[in-house]
Design a protein around this nucleic acid. Structure first.
Length: 307
DNA sequence: TAGATACCTTATAG
DNA sequence: ACTATAAGGTATC
């Protein structure tokens, strides 16, 4: 495997790798040491994370990274630097984004708590399936469901004696029975995932087409997949399709709205979404949302008590 | 069109 | 122990 290191200090705002990967935006990385998402990492935050990446030649390759201070170290059988730059959004200007975010005590505390956390830009089909799976699920279990999908259905690639499983293709997922998907722990989401995979596999709808659409059009477009409502569509927009203005209205951001921004609650998704987006940061509101989500989920007290 | 309810399964609160 | 409730919601009526 080749290796290299990226000096994260070269990117304004730096990087907090653990927060970026373990903040519930992506479930496509795992820890080779066998630990699941830990809070905080017992290693002190410098654990290795592994994933796979489909390189430009269409081949599945493994990729490992860890952060030691200002160095982001990687190991992969290809030049992983450009891939990491994109998937971890290293070129996002964090200080500028923070400056454009709500000038608000809670948002400031969230930025302070996890400064260096970045949004991710992950492949769209795995992200789509992941967030269909996320309905009524805890973060830890969403992670386990994606591990099971990779382990049981994903293509394997072995390098230096270690086997890595990539995310299963739409065709593979569509060809897997509902019962089998239920056995992987998907529950009632199994038929949703299967039907969505079929739509993608047969070319009926291309989720990637939402990338070039305007944000709200993209969100509506994505809801034609089964199991995808406004919230899941927003997650796909934000974590896979470069729509940084998306603010997924999950239970945590809804609690935050009730506690801190009650005037943003317009009783329906579209209007509430627009109001909280304007409040949090407009075209980069998704950043403030993700910091808030991660901060509130790890806070000792309920949002209402923090007001 | 807005509101209520069922839904797999697990972890945690009481 | 044992039940109720909630977990990054969506589909259906």
């Amino acid at each position: 495997m080749d290796s290299g290191r990226i000096s994260v200090g070269d990117f304004p705002g730096g990087l907090d790798l653990q927060a970026t990967i373990e903040s519930g935006q992506t479930y496509l990385w795992w820890r080779p040491d066998g630990e699941t998402y830990a809070e905080p990492a017992p290693s002190g935050g410098d654990a290795w994370y592994a994933t796979t990446h489909e390189t430009d030649d269409g081949q599945l390759r493994p990729l490992r990274v860890r952060q030691r201070g200002s160095a982001l170290e990687w190991e992969a059988p290809f030049d992983a630097a450009p891939v990491l730059e994109r998937r971890l959004r290293l070129t996002d200007d964090l200080p500028a984004i923070r400056a454009a975010s709500a000038d608000d005590p809670v948002v400031e505390r969230a930025y302070d708590a996890f400064w260096g956390m970045r949004l991710v830009e992950e492949p769209v089909f795995p992200t789509l399936v992941t967030f269909i799976c996320s309905a009524q699920m805890r973060v830890e279990r969403i992670f386990r469901m994606q591990m099971a999908l990779r382990r049981e259905l994903g293509p394997a690639v072995t390098v230096d004696g270690t086997t890595y499983h990539g995310y299963p293709s739409p065709t593979t997922v569509a060809a897997t029975s509902e019962a089998e998907l239920r056995d992987l722990g998907l529950g009632y989401r199994a038929p949703y995932v299967r039907e969505t995979a079929r739509m993608v596999a047969e070319g009926e709808v291309d989720p990637g087409a939402a990338r070039s659409q305007s944000y709200e059009t993209a969100r509506d477009f994505l809801t034609q997949f089964v199991g995808v409502g406004d919230k899941v569509a927003d997650c796909v927009c934000l974590f896979a399709l470069d729509h940084l203005e998306a603010v997924p209205l999950d239970t945590w951001i809804r609690k935050a709205i009730a506690a801190f921004y009650p005037d943003c609650d317009h009783g329906n998704y579209a209007d509430t979404s627009r109001a909280i987006r304007d409040r949090l940061g407009g075209d980069v509101a998704g950043y403030a949302q993700t910091y808030l989500f991660h901060y509130l989920r790890h806070a000792d007290e309920e949002p209402a008590a923090l007001a």
